[in-house]
Write a protein that binds this DNA or RNA. Structure first.
Length: 414
RNA sequence: GGGGGAGUGUCCCGAGCGGCAAAGGGGGCGGACUGUAAAUCCGCUGGCUUCGCCUUCGUAGGUUCGAGUCCUACCUCCCCCA
């Protein structure tokens, strides 16, 4: 397993981060010789990253922890194009204002995982708009266009997939991989960056960058990808019915984030502990081997550790305590997500369910009530026309509204 | 340039004699069973002021009492010929 000499690659490999490496021995040797600089690009397609990006963020963190310098590259420029990798259709073009707003939200999360600064292994955050926005079309084509053949570009999965599925691929998107390759070249020149990492769907883009660096500057660059991560039952990481598992507390409360990990499938526990926590491998092996209901202890630890990394130790403890009260005592825990409604005037049950995020329309809420999923203060309700008012407040001055076993919200008067 | 085929419920795949809010899967959600797991079984899966009304089948028109279904034009994609 641990055929690597460098702590960096050794750690990534044993914890399950590695799918492909362009030149494993070369990269290993470079990492042994001294601190190297590596980067991962993040496009600003939403106002927050979600759990699907967490693997990449953890890699940057491990990179720093093992004595190297990570760069978080913000795709302020590439987002204007849109990456076609792994997608059936072009996503809607975002306005520059949207992109900038998204970058704001995204960049915030890195401070929790990386130490930034000016030191040799301090992380950097760079925006590729710094160079991409200034490119001159003709000059760019003449300088770099000769290094890419259409023949080769057509052979990459990101392109082939779209073509095979008979979906249109526009010239705009077709250019994405070239710009990403150029990013790598720029970073190698500006920051002596020799490594690009990313998800397995980025392999083609990364290889293009390596090629470009070799042809233009004669540099030896490296690429490393992570496996496509799914849950044991095949679902994409970071997606739930309620939507993505956002890393921003504004979009997903620390409590719900904790719950996401707590609800991991048994078969995923070991793998997730290795990827999303920093517990020692021996400890993880012990936890993953727990049988039956005992594995719930491992899941709690997973939730605690993962939440602490993102939202801090205090938030993790609070989430764990809220969960304990809610699930193990069946109590109305004060730490549950809370919404405020005008209870004095009275609020319809269906409307309350929509506001609580249980349903996206009154009709859907109605079906949930008819299906017996909705409870008020832990009592099932069947009357969809019920009105919630001040009279429903419990001893703690709130109404506990629940859907199913896992979704709970506290309603407080305005 | 010529000929043929395709685009369906804004999660996906996919049926659809002119009466259709539109078969069936998958996914998702809820219920039962459990361990806040998986598997299994059951229910739900367009919106609303719900005995009814409104909006959906690539886009825009047309025929018809009535169109996803027929006609015309346009858009996109695929295949064959040149």
């Amino acid at each position: 397993m641990s055929q690597f000499k460098s702590e960096f690659l050794n750690t990534l490999a044993t914890r399950g981060f590695v799918h492909q490496i362009s030149d494993a021995e070369g990269l290993d040797a470079a990492a042994v010789a001294g601190p190297i600089t590596g980067y991962i690009g993040f496009d600003a397609t939403a106002s927050s990253l979600h759990a699907g990006s967490l693997v990449q963020i953890m890699m940057l963190r491990w990179m720093q922890k093992t004595g190297h310098r990570p760069i978080a590259l913000m795709g302020g420029g590439t987002t204007k194009i849109g990456d076609p990798s792994g997608k059936d259709e072009a996503r809607k073009l975002l306005t520059v204002a949207q992109i900038n707003a998204n970058l704001d939200g995204i960049s915030r999360v890195f401070g929790r995982f990386l130490r930034f600064g000016q030191g040799p292994t301090d992380a950097l955050m760079i925006n590729n708009a710094d160079w991409l926005d200034r490119l001159n079309y003709i000059d760019f084509l003449r300088d770099y266009g000769t290094h890419f053949t259409i023949n080769r570009m057509l052979s990459f999965d990101s392109v082939k997939l779209r073509l095979d599925r008979e979906q249109p691929l526009t010239l705009l998107e077709f250019n994405y991989m070239i710009l990403q390759a150029y990013d790598f070249l720029e970073l190698s020149r500006r920051q002596a960056c020799v490594l690009q990492m990313g998800g397995s769907d980025q392999w083609g883009n990364i290889v293009n960058g390596i090629e470009l660096g070799r042809r233009v500057d004669g540099r030896q660059l490296h690429g490393l990808t992570t496996p496509l991560l799914t849950t044991a039952s095949g679902a994409k990481m970071g997606k739930t019915a309620a939507g993505a598992v956002w890393l921003s507390a504004d979009l997903l409360s620390p409590y719900d984030y904790w719950q996401y990990w707590r609800n991991a499938e048994d078969a995923d526990v070991g793998r997730f502990l290795k990827l999303y926590t920093e517990l020692p491998l021996a400890e993880i092996a012990r936890l993953a081997a727990l049988g039956g209901s005992e594995i719930n202890e491992a899941k709690k630890l997973l939730a605690n550790e993962a939440t602490a990394l993102l939202h801090g130790h205090a938030a993790a403890v609070a989430a764990a305590e809220t969960a304990r009260q809610t699930f193990e005592e069946g109590a109305s825990a004060a730490g549950l997500p809370t919404i405020s409604l005008d209870l004095k005037a009275g609020v319809g049950l269906l409307q309350a369910c929509v506001t609580a995020g249980f349903a996206s329309s009154n009709g859907e809420a109605r079906r949930h009530v008819q299906g017996g999923a909705i409870r008020v203060n832990d009592l099932a309700v069947s009357d969809e026309k019920m009105t919630l008012g001040l009279g429903h407040l419990n001893a703690d001055g709130a109404i506990k509204l629940s859907m199913g076993k896992k979704k709970h919200v506290l309603i407080k008067p305005l």
